[in-house]
Design a binder for these strands. Structure first.
Lengths: 338, 338
DNA sequence: ATGAAAGCGCTAACAT
DNA sequence: ATGTTAGCGCTTTCAT
């Protein structure tokens, strides 16, 4: 029965023995120090130090019924937008001694499903998610099992669920409105798949702006990057647009990362920005201002988003909790690319 | 005794009851399906589906003694270097059904200590860390308690510990060597605090290059950004350097993020790059090529780094495991800023 | 092939 | 103020 590697760490039991008290007392000095007499407490604490005691959080959580981990399911951890959101989430969680598990879905529904299950098994305290489909049965089921879910960067389709979103219709409107004001009429939109709400909404916003300017919204040349809404994907799709029959004078992009690819492709072809082609991005990532052509973009309140989402999730423990749908607003940042 | 919110999820027990078998059998269909008869298995599986069974990972891990979480302690989750490393780690872990907990220390030793404790309590399977001090007592103790630790972006000071590093001395050498070859003699180095190994090593490498060119290494004008090795920090420190008695002709930076600040500050002052001032970065983050002035930089093999680190960590479970210190190599990428 | 039962390390009554 | 003990949900011998 001898285990091979049992540098098993000391538990509450060893501490109790060393301090000459019962395990219950040790538990109390950890969880309700005021219940135990000063002298005993000192003895126990010194024993803990001596034995390098680290409480087994799993056992704790199993018994106490609540864990110290929160899961964040986002499209891509390496995307600078989510990166900043996650950082804010992490900081907020730290205030409550919670820790963040990150998961990238790459917009793949099966990866999403897999991670959701993993997180649920893991017994996370709750899940923050930028869902591929906010109305999905899967999310409803998770909530039905009592696990708090907060939608991040996505408005809740139902009132009983928390969400923090940024108004993407407004964002799209801002972007297109700006281009129209600059005199552009043939506008392309490098968008992600419309099945992603952000993409659909931004598209809608752009069409609203066109309509308001008495332009036919159908003339928006929407290019769909499915699964390749990346810098490289954009470079690839640029070819198609430029060699088409109806070359646009402006390209709006669903993200700064995509805009980066557009700028790169344009530069490779010697097409000047903004003179020959205007470009606008989305997100306002940290480097947007320092690009070869500083990028006009739609700024998202990333930190607020992360912090608010974390806060809502932590709050769900509270029985008095009311479900909130927070909507934040984007902002047009004009630079040189348009 | 009635709990307030008990939408408690169904456990192995409920499944057992529904399927008319014992809990042991249910456990077996989960963990050793071949031990149980086909028909029983089917009954159990259908019961699991019916009851939306999700196994309690905490209990599982408590009993089985190994968890499915791995912690990564890095300087800053939002830093594009770590962002890419983490993403690779995440992907590698996913292959083993593990999940990643991320922690940003901001180079603060107390934050690091706090997160390490949290992770250890959390019962992570192991810890990947970019330590503020790789030789710290704290890390040694963690390992002594049987928790695998792999140093990331840092060579192990001792042979019994795994590590994946990138040769930073070489990187510094590459950067300075390049500037020297371009004719620069007065070189400034916007570095982080030398207590961080990467910073110390890159500085060393730069001095090596100077020495090789028969230049006095003491002439390297090293500017220390402590706790503000950020874009903003760099902008602030630039003032000091430019108004000093001995203005450099080139600025090397400890990261692309810092270089971004230098470029920004230079641009604000109308100083042309590279004509009036050469700049080189470090990391080769995704946007480095698309900056206003495309950035000459030292490329780090970020994906390899993350993947290798995750692999080493996962391997430590293996009793046959040997401790490896992997050293990867950086690469000079010349663009227009120098 | 399946069941019964003893824990994993901890918490929370309840007893003293 | 401290000790005792019954579990949390699961795995894992050991019987059957």
């Amino acid at each position: 029965m001898a285990r091979v590697r049992p540098p098993r760490r000391n538990g509450i039991r060893e501490v109790a023995a060393a301090a000459g008290v019962s395990v219950g007392t040790v538990s109390n000095v950890i969880n309700s120090p005021d219940l135990v007499a000063g002298s005993t407490r000192q003895r126990v604490e010194s024993a803990m130090r001596q034995l390098a005691f680290v409480r087994n959080g799993l056992a704790h959580q199993l018994r106490a019924g609540r864990s110290a981990t929160v899961g964040a399911v986002v499209l891509d951890l390496a995307n600078p937008f989510f990166t900043e959101v996650n950082r804010s989430v992490e900081d907020r969680l730290a205030e409550d001694d919670c820790v963040l598990i990150v998961c990238s879905t790459d917009e793949k529904i099966d990866k999403e499903a897999r991670y959701l299950r993993l997180l649920e098994e893991q017994g996370v305290r709750g899940i923050l998610i930028t869902p591929t489909d906010p109305g999905s049965e899967r999310i409803a089921q998770i909530r039905a099992r009592g696990l708090p879910v907060v939608l991040m960067d996505c408005p809740s389709p139902v009132p009983q669920m928390c969400s923090v979103a940024v108004d993407d219709v407004q964002g799209g409107d801002l972007a297109a409105g700006h281009l129209i004001a600059r005199g552009h009429r043939r506008i392309a939109f490098f968008n992600g798949p419309r099945t992603i709400r952000q993409c659909a909404d931004r598209s809608l916003g752009m069409r609203n702006a066109l309509r308001r300017a008495d332009l036919d919204p159908a003339h928006l040349m929407e290019v769909t990057l499915s699964g390749d809404a990346t810098t490289e994907g954009a470079v690839a799709h640029l070819e198609t647009v430029l060699s088409g029959p109806d070359v646009p004078t402006a390209i709006a992009c669903v993200s700064d990362v995509v805009a980066l690819g557009v700028l790169r492709g344009l530069r490779q072809r010697g097409i000047r920005v903004p003179d020959e082609m205007a470009v606008v991005g989305y997100d306002d990532v940290p480097f947007a201002a320092e690009l070869y052509t500083p990028l006009t973009t739609i700024r998202q309140p990333k930190q607020q988003l992360g912090r608010a989402a974390a806060e809502l999730l932590l709050d769900e423990a509270d029985p008095e909790h009311v479900h909130q749908q927070i909507v934040l607003h984007p902002e047009l940042v004009i630079r040189s690319s348009s």
